[in-house]
Design a protein around this nucleic acid. Structure first.
Lengths: 138, 138
DNA sequence: CCGAATCCATAAGGATACTG
DNA sequence: CAGTATCCTTATGGATTCGG
């Protein structure tokens, strides 16, 4: 048993959040936002097979709007996760490819997807159980 | 070489999104949303050291509102990622702890944070380079 | 073909006040 | 202490239009 009086302020792990210095927190959040971004993960996942052009990406990612595609590509490019190559041809051609840095991120995303696929039925079971027993706990 | 009427290699990837069946896509997105959620990741990270009560979580995660804390806890609990234990005492005491499932998710989050911390200067360099070379975006 | 720019609907998220 | 409920501001994102 534990007394709340025993560790009133000591409960704080000597920091704002876990063992992560507040200095890095802001940046970590930015990376997390990129990963959590629906479109960013899709773009990175689609690009893993090789470079694609703008319209190809639009077709490969159903439901994405030009606005979001352009935005996502800009962000990913600005972070050095993907590269943009524009060929000055009469019909403009632009190819986007996964940069080494982006390939590293894709590894993380892949692991996350693997984990999700591996435990999705488990999570679903918990959801169903909680939904069935509204006020009752398992 | 680039007739709009002819599209040589377009359906090469063959599928809506990489090799992930559309059936799982919806669920994957949900998991990604959880991971990408700023507060969910923070809660999971903070809980990794052991169970905490409501007010402890509030203090450990600066800037979170009751609304978001409650919401996040409900979602995580509904997915079976954390457990909620309420003690029927005169001063109410509720403890939240990481469930085995949530511990698995924390592993992913930890890897992501490690990766971010490992490459954050690299990404920052790209950002600075892009901000300098090209004119300002938006 | 590759975007940029604008408009607009919806949702996320914070602040506050109140309850059991 | 541990939430709930309400209001309200802001951010997100789709649809559309225009430009290079």
């Amino acid at each position: 048993m534990h007394e709340d009086a025993a560790k009133p302020e000591m409960a704080a792990v000597a920091g704002p959040c876990a063992n992560i210095p507040a200095d890095h927190m802001a940046f970590i959040r930015q990376v997390l936002d990129r990963v959590g971004d629906k479109w960013s993960t899709l773009v990175v996942t689609v690009l893993k097979d090789g470079p694609l052009r703008y319209t190809d990406l639009q077709r490969q990612i159903p439901g994405i709007s030009q606005r979001m595609l352009t935005r996502t590509l800009h962000q990913l490019q600005e972070d050095g996760l993907i590269t943009r190559t524009a060929y000055a041809e009469v019909p403009p051609r632009v190819e986007y490819a996964l940069a080494p840095l982006g390939r590293g991120l894709h590894e993380i995303v892949r692991q996350l997807i693997d984990w999700a696929a591996d435990h999705h039925d488990e999570i679903r079971a918990h959801r169903a159980a909680n939904a069935a027993t509204t006020s009752r706990r398992s």
